[in-house]
């Protein structure tokens, strides 16, 4: 799986969880750039991502994710 494929799946998850159809993520996107992505929805997104990709993020790893690019790379390293 490459970064573009991962981004595509993440777009779908973000739109579904945050109930916003207009979301388009890029590698540089952070929580500040997406309306509704905050501390109250962050773990819902992580949980959905974990179920979709059948992976698990320890909390210390989640803390280190600074943008969508970091998230994509973490998913790719766990799924490949």
């Amino acid at each position: 799986m490459d970064i573009n494929e991962t981004l595509e799946i993440l777009n779908r998850i973000f739109r579904q969880v945050l109930k916003k159809t207009e979301i388009t993520l890029s590698e540089n996107t952070t929580a500040h750039d997406v309306d509704g992505w905050n501390s109250l929805t962050n773990m819902l997104l992580i949980s959905e991502i974990e179920q979709t990709f059948q992976i698990h993020f320890p909390f210390r790893e989640i803390v280190k994710l600074k943008n969508v690019g970091d998230l994509c790379r973490a998913i790719i390293s766990k799924t490949n």
Binding site: S39, L40, M43, S47, F59, I62, V63
Partner: peptide
């Protein structure tokens, strides 16, 4: 409180979805 209590708590309860968020809050 958000960074050092709430976020670690939601990490533990995240499998419960909205209920987990509510318990953590």
């Amino acid at each position: 409180v958000r960074d050092y209590l709430y976020l670690p708590l939601t990490s533990v309860t995240r499998r419960l979805g909205q209920t987990g968020i509510a318990i953590s809050l």
